[in-house]
Design a protein around this nucleic acid. Sequence first.
DNA 1: AATGAATGAGACTTCATTCAT
DNA 2: CATGAATGAAGTCTCATTCAT
Lengths: 230, 230, 230, 230
Amino acid sequence: MTTAAATPQRRSPAGPKAEQRVRDILRVGREVFAERGYEGATTTEIAQRLGISEATIFTYFRGKRELCQRAIQDWYDENIAAMQAGLPREASVRAQLEYLVLTNLRVFLVQGTGICALVLSEGRAKGPGLGEGLVELQRRYTAPLMALLARGQEAGEVRRDIPLRLLRSLVFGPIEQMLWEVVITGRQIDVEASARDLVALLWPALQAPDQELQQLRRLRGQLQALLAQS
Amino acid sequence: MTTAAATPQRRSPAGPKAEQRVRDILRVGREVFAERGYEGATTTEIAQRLGISEATIFTYFRGKRELCQRAIQDWYDENIAAMQAGLPREASVRAQLEYLVLTNLRVFLVQGTGICALVLSEGRAKGPGLGEGLVELQRRYTAPLMALLARGQEAGEVRRDIPLRLLRSLVFGPIEQMLWEVVITGRQIDVEASARDLVALLWPALQAPDQELQQLRRLRGQLQALLAQS
Amino acid sequence: MTTAAATPQRRSPAGPKAEQRVRDILRVGREVFAERGYEGATTTEIAQRLGISEATIFTYFRGKRELCQRAIQDWYDENIAAMQAGLPREASVRAQLEYLVLTNLRVFLVQGTGICALVLSEGRAKGPGLGEGLVELQRRYTAPLMALLARGQEAGEVRRDIPLRLLRSLVFGPIEQMLWEVVITGRQIDVEASARDLVALLWPALQAPDQELQQLRRLRGQLQALLAQS
Amino acid sequence: MTTAAATPQRRSPAGPKAEQRVRDILRVGREVFAERGYEGATTTEIAQRLGISEATIFTYFRGKRELCQRAIQDWYDENIAAMQAGLPREASVRAQLEYLVLTNLRVFLVQGTGICALVLSEGRAKGPGLGEGLVELQRRYTAPLMALLARGQEAGEVRRDIPLRLLRSLVFGPIEQMLWEVVITGRQIDVEASARDLVALLWPALQAPDQELQQLRRLRGQLQALLAQS
DNA sequence: AATGAATGAGACTTCATTCAT
DNA sequence: CATGAATGAAGTCTCATTCAT
């Protein structure tokens, strides 16, 4: 009796107008989820900000959860693209690192940390939460930095004796900390100076010890010269 | 004449049995809030896990918010105490730093990062949320590290040219990152090794540049000896 | 920066069907509040009597309090309008008074005294209760009688030496008493006869003493005539 | 199996101490019910004001309803007794009327109108409410006035052509109105002057028309004298 | 006799979601 | 396609009442 063919779910209508609708809802959805968190956000508010009916949202999305997931995904896609697009691949490793740090700071300071907090707090929800694809997104998000660090290692500018993961934490960790400080205290900061300072602070730790050794050898030479003079 | 008499507050019981109840509820409340976040947690679930009636919870706490606040505060109090109690004040600055890093990693890895995420995500809630006393708690939580860094500066072992705040971020940031990695990927790590590695990684960045100079001078002495031998 | 954005208000629907719903809910709400008092009434009962979901009530009203306030206001508006519409302004003061008394009796006997009791008992509630606009409504409700009494005073038919307030009490007081008797004992009364009787009873007390003097003078004339005949 | 003997409900312990407890609870219960209304009052508040446990209340009363009923009854008993005790039975009917009016005003103005409102609003509750014995209590409460009016009728000082019930309404109605005015507006009044004024206002309406005739006859005599002189 | 402690029942309210139009 | 209208399910919280101690 029951035909094997799945009922064609009449969701997500197609067409250029429809695409615009989807984009609008995603944009505002992102805003609201970022401001209020997943549970705190309501479809009512999203619909009201758009000036449309709540029901319309459900014409384009299967539910609140899906909308939120897609909003997060969109945010990642945008920022991953931006991160990769602007990277000055010809510059020095350190310069590229500065670019990535600066861009990361900007992403959050300009767009708010809401999405970040959203991901952090919803990513850990028990049961089948939002967090399905988050690991992969996070991986892609941090990919440019990972690649850069790898290139740095190859070039002998970044130490090889520490797992990349740990180095990544060393970079992203302080960034996040700085952001929370801004959020909590409300104090404004000079983004570019902060990026420069942070990289200056991190750079010695990232550098390869053998690199240090080379420096020391160079130093030894210099010292020899010095000693000769004294 | 008919001045508004304040509605009487239902006092929470105060006997010895009561104290145990309060502890139980706080313990389970902490669990659930950590797992689900403030909005996602329900008094129903807390009561069910305890095998008690929902009403009982409200006999001991004025409401969900108060329960959550006290759960967070409890968590902080416990860990602040633990952090200060075990600190080897006679050891070197670096050894003390290792202790703090290790303890922080343990705190979260053993107890879960839920509370941390809870604080992070609810701290930013609009309006008069949970975040009343959070700033102060956070300050007390980071106080041991701050004090240590300050002592390090006085001893000339930690660079003075960078604000303490930034140095703190440099320490806590990577810790948090490592924790997230554990949570997200589910991979276990060797806590003690990780702590050692992280400090080794951080130490050069924390050291005072003039300290480096001193090292170089010591190095020069050694080099002189070396040179003499060669 | 993260200023608390007002939570968006769920707007009540505004279509033509919606208006009917609002009217229905107000009608039944008035009934239930009248029967049970504010605290005693439940949204559950109102919804059940209407055969709708409780949630529907909250689609149209912000809450129980608002529903009750609007129900009371509606009741007042209806009756104030009715009172003023039917007043025979060309008739004698006494005839108009009879009309007002009769209408008042009818208002309560037909619609029940519930709303009246509701207003009386909730008007005194501690704190910011329902009683916000009640004083004003009550003023408007008694306005026709007050105006009539004032006109009576100007026309020399109502005594001027007593504050209007007291005269008003003299009229409304017994009306209310009669109503309670009906309610409590359940005995039916002849509304029109009662109104006539009550006015007959009140009239001497309302009349101006100098008016009495005039009557006595008239009487004196009649007496003179009488005396002459005797 | 089930013995016919009713289980002896172990309620209302006896003894002199117990009686004091009952009195205390009734006293405070009256206060709270008067302030908050039946639904608004809580056993919690009553217990707290007494400094005893909630459970104790239920040792002496079967439940909230019973407590409230007995509190109301007590109030009536007290005031009925007071009303009858102080009545100057030797004075004129009018003087006795003034006493009753004054006492009624005092009862409410001193003790608050809470109980009055309580009776009014709970007396009409649907189902088996508090209102069981209220009719009888109300009858006894108004008995002194009824008796006085009856004596007045016998003495020819109060008109006989109007049912006593209506005359009673004529007296109590305005009293109640005045009270509500005091409660609502919060304005203080001179109780004794108000009582005098009200009786002065009512007296003509209460007087027997044949009494009036007698007055007119007396007047006629006086008029004759007057006419003779003129 | 008094109470500390617990709770069942039920209140108001919110919100994601559905469906006929 | 968009939506007005309705609602089931669930949430937080209150309170009269019971019972072992």
